[in-house]
């Protein structure tokens, strides 16, 4: 299952990663070699095997949807937002989306 230059370009666009024209070929060949290695898996029949997403087969833990962190909520929000690239009045600022 080799991968084409176009598939890499599409995947990069979906992942919001820009590849320069002069690096797409190199990235494609490196990823193709990774996928060739990965394709060794196709040699074995796994049709009867249940996929495993957690090595202990543990179920997701649930809790009730309520705030349980103690303390001043406004101060906590401000601390969390202190590192934002741009913010105002408790909101994250981004470039204008709607004209």
């Amino acid at each position: 299952m080799s991968i084409s230059r176009e598939e890499i370009a599409t995947t990069a666009r979906l992942a919001r990663i820009r590849l320069r024209d002069d690096e797409i070929d190199d990235v494609t060949s490196r990823i193709a070699s990774i996928l060739d290695m990965v394709d060794q898996m196709q040699a074995i029949d796994t049709s009867a095997v249940e996929p495993m997403s957690n090595s202990l087969d543990a179920a997701q833990v649930l809790r009730s949807d309520k705030v349980d962190e103690p303390g001043d909520k406004i101060a906590a929000r401000e601390a969390l937002m202190a590192g934002a690239p741009a913010q105002q009045d408790g909101l994250f600022l981004v470039p204008k989306v709607i004209e």
């Binding site: 598939e7 990663i17 590849l19 990235v27 990823i31």
Partner: peptide
């Protein structure tokens, strides 16, 4: 993302997304 991530990280994101 293109400026903030290095090459190996971008490569693995692309493999994973694919």
């Amino acid at each position: 993302r293109s400026e903030g991530f290095g090459d190996e990280v971008k490569r693995r994101i692309l493999v994973g997304a694919y």
